[in-house]
């Protein structure tokens, strides 16, 4: 099954990269940009038929390795 994992920095944690990119965009004239946050997307293909089981498996992977729970949240989307 195809799975997408979106790893996002927790909202209260600073994102210096996003801040800098926002500045650059404003510099280029895109001054409507209020905030930029840069996150990561990971695509996986996982063997299995039951999307709940796969969801649980991938969530475990996020906790173990894919995300840094101190800084990041994750969202697992299983595509049928």
């Amino acid at each position: 099954m195809k799975v997408t994992v979106n790893i996002t920095r927790r909202p209260e944690i600073a994102d210096p990269q996003g801040t800098t990119v926002r500045r650059a965009l404003v510099d280029l004239g895109h001054d409507a940009v209020r905030e930029v946050r840069i996150d990561r997307t990971i695509h996986l293909e996982v063997e299995g038929h039951d999307s709940d089981t796969v969801h649980t498996q991938v969530s475990r992977m996020c906790e173990q390795l894919l995300s840094n729970p101190v800084l990041e949240d994750f969202e697992v989307v299983v595509h049928g």
């Binding site: 944690i13 600073a14 210096p16």
Partner: peptide, 10 residues
């Protein structure tokens, strides 16, 4: 704890 993030560029 809420982790502080450093920005060397700043």
């Amino acid at each position: 704890p809420s982790v502080q993030v450093g920005d060397p560029f700043e």
